[in-house]
Design a protein around this nucleic acid. Structure first.
Lengths: 169, 169
DNA sequence: CTACATGCAAACAGTTTGCCATCGC
DNA sequence: GCGATGGCAAACTGTTTGCATGTAG
């Protein structure tokens, strides 16, 4: 059966190749915010004939078509999520890397007010909370840098909302 | 005379080499949020004997010592600013790239409340507004559709300030 | 049939690092 | 003098691209 994203592609007149269909499917199934490598991993499981370059190209195309949204949660890799619901923000669990979405109209109003006070119109904004589940007091949880893609799981990341680029072994 | 940052370095027992002193000085003078290349450019003006690798190492060291804070405004490069005033956020002018700082206790309270409602304690948060000066209605940006958090440079003050170094992608 | 998509590997930008000469303390 | 530091170039990571081949429409 045809996924929602596949339908969008057709509507926009995109040539539907096998690999685009696979990426579209993977994205439709994703409930999380995968990065390109993860998408590539999931796509490969459905079709060996796909290269990571194609995933990059497809993801970029989809973004240009407004089908996908690119997120940058720090950590150096772009994460993607299908454009769907209205504006929402993300709370990243610093222990598990899981991402929780939330919205908040009041916050939005506040931001517009602040910008207005400075003489600006808000074009877009970025808001991310990094938090720890209550009760999980700073316990030195095994900092398992579990790289291997746990399907369904957003990757762990450092707090501070900073880049942490490069392999700091 | 000794800058505030140089003093901090000494307090922390860091070996004060010539190049560290230069970087410290450049940072103390910076009123903006320069990236490493810009720091390197400014530092080079004061001392030819400095390599970009040293700037990277110094900036990392200072960050670990809590003297500097790394920011990621998108665009792929890390930006730095001396740790000084209390928590504040940034509004980036999408036309000029200039960064304006602001604070807002109310917003902070709100964020803690939201996290709390979800069962989390806020460890840190990232908030950036991308805005356009009121009245500057959507001018046709030469660069085709790219997301707000764009390149440009903040308060170019150095002579060699031509930030645009080359077409990305 | 033809313009566009893909695979592969090489190119890139930003950042880090190995090695050895050098310098602060 | 000794161990930390700096210079240089090579290594790395995430992402893009040139080129030849394959394929949707």
């Amino acid at each position: 059966m045809e996924t929602r994203i596949e339908r969008l592609c057709v509507e926009r007149g995109l040539k539907m190749t096998g690999q685009r269909r696979v990426v579209a499917r993977v994205l439709s199934d994703a409930g999380d915010h995968p990065d390109v490598e993860e998408l590539y991993r999931r796509a490969s499981a459905l079709d060996q004939h796909i290269s990571i370059a194609t995933v990059y190209r497809t993801v970029r195309l989809f973004e240009e078509q407004g089908i996908l949204e690119r997120r940058d949660f720090g950590g150096g890799r772009a994460r993607y999520e299908p454009t769907e619901d209205g504006p929402h923000y993300h709370l990243i669990d610093v222990e598990t890397g899981k991402v929780i979405e939330f919205q908040d109209p009041e916050h939005e109003r506040l931001m517009h007010a602040i910008a207005g006070r400075l003489g600006f119109d808000v074009v877009s904004l970025r808001l991310e909370l990094f938090g720890r589940r209550q009760g999980t007091a700073g316990k030195p949880r095994s900092r398992a840098a579990s790289r291997p893609g746990e399907p369904d799981d957003d990757a762990p990341m450092a707090p501070a909302g900073e880049a942490t680029k490069g392999a700091r072994r």
